[in-house]
Write a protein that binds this DNA or RNA. Structure first.
Length: 490
RNA sequence: GUCCCCAUCGUCUAGCACGGCCUAGGACAUCGCCCUUUCAAGGCGGUAACACGGGUUCAAAUCCCGUUGGGGACGCCA
């Protein structure tokens, strides 16, 4: 998409156009997802357009791998985009022409300072307690000092934007309200590097104009950039979009969420067995609310979402609440959906061998017994293991506590009784249990726990009657026999 | 250092724009009880917050100012 400049002035304010513009210098992280989500919801709620744009102008740090991860993450989350993904590296020519235009109009100038010099001056300023602002030594070189860089010198120079130094700039932020900046605090920022590539503050403005973005919804770490960008819009004589700066997501120590706080990439949450809807639901409630409601369907989210209900303060990321939401989603998802979600985990965790298929009705039944006790797909997978696998392994503690001399005879008798029934259903199995405990005047637990360990290897499982039914007669008898043998040996 | 933002239970938040309905509500976590063959799920109940100080007002969590605290930005990163 490349609209030319004149078409741009005919902006249609009625249609909402928003974008998510990640830079592929790392994995798609939780903070980015939240920004993407709010943009997506705003677009969907307003029947607008959601655009994905990859900000890869920093060629040294951007990688194809990260671009793929971002796209995969967005797809997994169900945040579909209507345009893009655009890539800024495809658009360098456009940025160059805008920079030239600014240069020609005297709104930008060549800066011949070396990066090392700049860094040194910055450090000095900081050490002396002065604002580390560019000292402007190249600012009026041509006009005042009559210096004219040669073609070669210019080719190796960076280009700086001439920032107005008087007056104030007002940002009427949709979330933060009116924020006023003194222009004298604004820095002449570099818009073109000395290697000829454009930088963020130029490309973001050019692209947002070029793509007709109406609302810039982004993290509030960009709030300070906004007045600078507004001046670039003005210099280019473009209409300024509306801004909405979202509060940050913090780690438990209240600093900006980062890798050192543990899992922060979408990929990590996919691997840990989270459902996309749960992550989305959790993230949307970080900074946004709709009364007391905690659980939302996508449709409700789209219907209710508005920037007015976005809070102003930063929020601490709480993995426990996310876990709870995930368990809620597992409890409430249709079995069919759960099967779809858990199959990759069954393969990956080697619960099923390559090419092995399972009966879906049977699997549904198995999953239905487990959904209330699985907070993640990993947990579900691990429980499914004793339903599916040929053999089980005993948890050591469970084994020593329940598979011993005390339970041996009971298990033998139980196995015999079980062998005789033909209808291997939970209700028939229950009868076998009940008659045996009655005969020996023991509590159900005295029999159920040893059986549970014999069949599942663990002390916890769904109701033992249904567990046996799902495991099936053949495997049940086999495992009981193995348990009896195990006791015999020890 | 300078600028900007923010401030209700441990955490996410409702309430704040239109001050009284707030003895501050919900959720997660936590504690207790119930249910119970285990583990869950579920039900019921408990502990727990308006950062502080000044105003304005008959009345302030809600409005104003200050303080403190926290966060962010100050790059030839985005």
């Amino acid at each position: 998409m490349e609209l030319n400049l004149s078409e741009k002035s005919l902006r249609l304010d009625s249609e909402v156009r928003v974008r998510f513009a990640p830079s592929p210098t790392g994995h798609l992280h939780i903070g980015g997802v939240r920004t993407a989500l709010f943009n997506w919801l705003y677009a969907r709620h307003n029947k607008g357009t959601f655009i994905l744009r990859i900000e890869d102008t920093d060629r040294t740090r951007s990688t194809e791998e990260y671009i793929d991860a971002i796209i995969e993450g967005m797809k997994w989350l169900g945040l579909d985009w209507d345009e893009g993904p655009y890539r800024q590296t495809d658009r360098f020519g456009i940025y160059k022409s805008y920079a030239d235009k600014l240069l020609k109009e005297g709104k930008a100038y060549y800066c011949y300072c070396r990066p090392e010099e700049l860094e040194q001056r910055r450090q000095e300023a900081l050490a002396q307690g002065r604002p580390p602002k560019y000292d402007g030594r190249c600012r009026n070189m041509e006009r005042v000092q009559g210096f004219k860089g040669s073609r070669v010198q210019k080719k190796n120079a960076a280009v700086r934007f001439r920032m107005p130094q008087e007056g104030q700039t007002v940002v009427d932020d949709l979330i933060k309200g009116r924020v006023i900046f003194e222009n004298s605090h604004l820095d002449d920022l570099i818009i073109m590097r000395s290697d000829g590539t454009p930088t963020y503050n130029l490309v973001v403005v050019v692209d947002d104009v070029d793509m007709n973005i109406t609302h810039v919804i982004r993290g509030d770490d960009h709030l300070n950039n906004t007045p600078k960008q507004i001046h670039i819009y003005n210099a280019l004589r473009y209409e300024v979009p509306l801004f909405a700066h979202l509060p940050m997501i913090l780690g438990p120590d209240k600093t900006r969420l980062s890798k050192r706080h543990g899992a922060t990439s979408v990929t990590a949450y996919i691997e840990m067995g989270y459902l996309p809807d749960a992550l989305v639901n959790y993230l949307v409630r970080l900074g946004w609310s709709h009364g007391d409601q905690e659980v939302f369907t996508r449709d409700e989210l789209i219907q209710y979402f508005s920037l007015e209900n976005v809070g102003k303060s930063a929020a601490v990321f709480n993995p426990e609440k996310l876990l709870w939401l995930n368990s809620q989603y597992i409890i409430n998802s249709p079995a069919k959906r759960l099967i779809e979600l858990v199959m990759p985990f069954l393969s990956k965790e080697k619960v099923i061998s390559e090419g092995q298929t399972l009966n879906n009705d049977w699997l549904s039944k198995a999953i239905n017994t487990l959904r209330e006790r699985s907070r993640t797909l990993i947990e579900l997978t691990n429980s499914l293991r004793y339903y599916i696998a040929e053999d089980i392994e005993y948890d050591e503690k469970a084994k020593s506590k329940f598979l011993n001399e005390k339970s041996r005879d009971l298990l033998i008798e139980f196995k015999e009784n079980l062998t005789s029934i033909t209808d291997f259903s939970a209700s028939e199995i229950e009868k076998v249990f009940l008659s045996l405990i009655e005969k020996h005047s023991i509590k159900l637990g005295n029999l159920a726990q040893p059986v549970r360990v014999a069949i599942t290897g663990k002390t916890e499982s769904p109701g033992i009657f249904e567990v046996l039914e799902i495991v099936g007669k053949e495997k049940t008898l086999k495992r009981l026999e193995k348990a009896i043998q195990t006791i015999g040996i020890s």
